[in-house]
C-alpha cells in the first residue's frame, strides 16, 4: 500500500480515539452533576476532582491527536 495513503488512514484511526475520551468526559461530568444534585453542598469539593479527572481524560484524546501529528511527520 502507498505510504501516504496508509498514513492518512492511520491519522484517521488516531483521531477515532477521541471517541473514548468523549465517553470518559461524559461520564466525568454526568457523575459530577449526579453527585451535586444529590448533595449540593459538596460542589466545591467535587468540582476540584472533576477538573483533575477531566484533564486526565482529555489528555487521552490529545495523545491520539499527537499520534496523528507524529504519523503526519513520519509520512514525509
Amino acid at each position: 500500500m502507498d505510504t501516504a495513503a496508509a498514513s492518512l488512514i492511520g491519522m484517521g484511526l488516531a483521531a477515532a480515539g477521541m471517541a473514548g475520551s468523549g465517553i470518559g468526559i461524559g461520564y466525568v461530568f454526568g457523575k459530577m452533576i449526579e453527585a451535586v444534585a444529590r448533595q449540593p453542598n459538596a460542589e466545591s469539593r467535587v468540582s476540584k476532582y472533576v477538573w483533575i479527572g477531566f484533564a486526565l481524560v482529555e489528555a487521552i484524546a490529545l495523545y491520539g491527536l499527537v499520534i496523528a501529528f507524529i504519523i503526519m511527520g513520519q509520512a514525509g
Binding site: L62, L65, V66
Partner: peptide
C-alpha cells in the same frame, strides 16, 4: 509527559 502534552496539545488543537 501527560502534563506537558496536555497543555501543548490543547493549545495546538
Amino acid at each position: 509527559v501527560s502534563l506537558a502534552v496536555r497543555l501543548f496539545a490543547n493549545m495546538t488543537a
